[in-house]
Structure formats: structure tokens, C-alpha cells
Amino acid sequence: MKKIIVITGILFIASLVMLSFRAEPVTPANYPALPRDSVGSVKAFMSVYKVLMSSRCMNCHPSGESPLQGDDNHIHTMNVKRGVDGKGLYAARCSNCHQAENTAGLHMPPGNPKWGLPPANMRMVFQGRTPRQLALQLLDPKQNGGRTKAQLIDHMAKDDLVGWAWHPGDGRTLPPMSRPAFAAQVRLWIAKGAYAPSIKTK
């Protein structure tokens, strides 16, 4: 019996460590609740924010109707537009160039089966958002695609398109931390109360 408890305990810890990548059932382990801690929560969010505002994430969460490109976040050449479903318009659909996987080579189109922007009715803008604005937006189901906090964690931790940011293809810089570290910070932010940074936080 003791053995079983120990094994269970090990598994529990292991699952806490290996927080992402697997389609795990909704368990308290994935969505831990910790004592509310506004300082710790905001600190975690600021790490999350840095990732979300990095080029690999922000370029497809632009403030305008066009995606961005490159580490300088310039507007996507070719006058590419979001379209209603976020997948482009007419002859400029995302998947016309962006394949299910990255095309090899510098400056070649990156790819993912779900490649696209958020749709026009749920634009999920990152570009230009302050930490507070982005935190509140992420937590608001009306602005985050109807996600609960648990679903938000899942999205950040497991979504395949989000995960592209850490496998962006030749020559593209990575977000400032690994995906597991990022997912852990998302969990911490929410576990400690999902606080939004103050207006002054930049």
C-alpha cells in the first residue's frame, strides 16, 4: 500500500513537472490552486507577457488587419489580410503558401495545419497591449475565444499552433523562454489568482 502511495506520489510530481504536451485529463494537477498571491501572480504574468509579445507570438496577433513578419514585426508583405475566419482572403489564404509544416530554408514560409490569425470576430490582439490590458483580455471569455482559465492554460500549454513558436523553422528567433517554462508561468499566474498587472506596469 505504501508502495502504491509512493508511486502515485511520484506520478503526481512527474505530471506536475511534465506539464505540457500531453492530452491529459482535467485534474487539479494540471490546474493547481495556490494561495492567492498578487505579487507572485503578476510576476508570472510578466514572464508570460514577454513571450506573448515576442515576434513568434505577436506577429499573428496584430493590432491591424494584416499579420506581421520578422523580428522587426513589419507588416506582412503582399498586403495579406485577416479575412473573416482569420485564414486570409481570396487568393491570399494563409494555407496557399503556409503548409502544414515549415518549409525548409531561410525566409521560406513557416507552417502549421492551423496557420492563421484569430478570426475577425475574436481578434485577440497582442500588439500594442499593455501588460494589464493583455492580462484582462486573456482572462475575458468574450475576448479570449470563450475560454475558461483551465482552457486558457491548455491553449497556452498544449495548442499545436501556439507550440509552433518554439519550432519556428530556419532562421527565426525563439520566444524568450522554453515552452514548458512558459506553460509553468501561465499556470503560476492563474494558480496564484490570475492578477492583472497595474496600469503602471510596462
Binding site: 508583405t77 503582399m78 481570396y90 487568393a91 491570399a92 489564404r93 494555407s95 496557399n96 503558401c97 503548409q99 518549409t103 530554408g105 525566409h107 521560406m108 514560409p109
Partner: peptide
């Protein structure tokens, strides 16, 4: 050869794909 110019555009199930990067 890099999906930049559109000269290779064909319809794949009706969509205007760039055939130079479409395996």
C-alpha cells in the same frame, strides 16, 4: 521558389496555392 511572387499559382481543390512550396 519561395512563395513570394505567385507565378506558380495553381488551384488545389479550388484554392490558389503556390505550387513552388506545395509538396
Amino acid at each position: 521558389g519561395a512563395a513570394q511572387c505567385g507565378a506558380c499559382t495553381v488551384h488545389l481543390n479550388g484554392e490558389a496555392v503556390r505550387s513552388c512550396v506545395t509538396k
